[in-house]
Simulated assay, not measured.
Amino acid sequence: MIRQCTILFGCLALGELIVWATGIPLPSSIIGMLLLTLFLKLGWLRLEWVKGMSDFLVANLGFFFVPPGVALMLYFDVIKAELLPITVATVVSTVVVLVVTGQVHQLLRKKRNK
């Protein structure tokens, strides 16, 4: 369990170091996840080394959304005042993501079939 935590937190720390050193405008947790994926794909890390902790974190993922949900309650007045722009932005961005994802999938599928 200590090795699993060390590997996961090490990738997170490495992502934090990369963001600090380069100024990349991405969250360090995303960089850390990408590094973990890269290390697993390259075979530098074995899945068994992180599987237990990863399974635990995924199984308890809902608990990680409780603090942001509670913090959201503090902004109900802002949400109520800006409900229309929030709704429009949500709907438009969802449609854009679906369309772009579909187009990219079709493009990659055509290239793969060639």
Score class of each variant (00 low, 15 high):
Met1Thr: 05
Arg3Asn: 07
Gln4Arg: 05
Thr6Tyr: 00
Thr6Trp: 05
Ile7Trp: 08
Phe9Leu: 09
Cys11Asp: 02
Gly15Trp: 07
Trp20Asp: 02
Ala21Lys: 05
Thr22Cys: 04
Pro25Gln: 10
Pro27Ser: 11
Ser29Gly: 01
Ile30Gly: 04
Ile30Leu: 11
Gly32Ser: 04
Leu35Ser: 06
Thr37Lys: 05
Phe39Ala: 10
Lys41Ile: 07
Gly43Trp: 04
Arg46Trp: 04
Val50Leu: 01
Met53Ala: 11
Met53Tyr: 09
Asp55Thr: 12
Asn60Asp: 05
Phe63Asn: 03
Phe64Glu: 06
Phe64Pro: 01
Phe65Gly: 02
Pro68Trp: 00
Gly69Trp: 00
Met73Glu: 00
Ile79Arg: 05
Ala81His: 12
Ala81Phe: 06
Glu82Arg: 13
Leu83Phe: 14
Leu84Trp: 15
Leu84Met: 12
Leu84Ile: 07
Val88Ala: 04
Val88Pro: 03
Ala89Gln: 07
Thr90Pro: 01
Val92Tyr: 10
Ser93Ala: 10
Val95Pro: 06
Val96Phe: 12
Val96Gln: 08
Val99Asn: 04
Val99Ala: 12
Val100Asn: 10
Val100Trp: 11
Gln103Thr: 11
Gln103Asp: 06
His105Ala: 11
Gln106Gly: 14
Gln106Cys: 11
Leu107Asn: 14
Leu108Phe: 15
Arg109Gln: 15
Arg109Val: 15
Lys110Gln: 15
Lys114Ile: 15
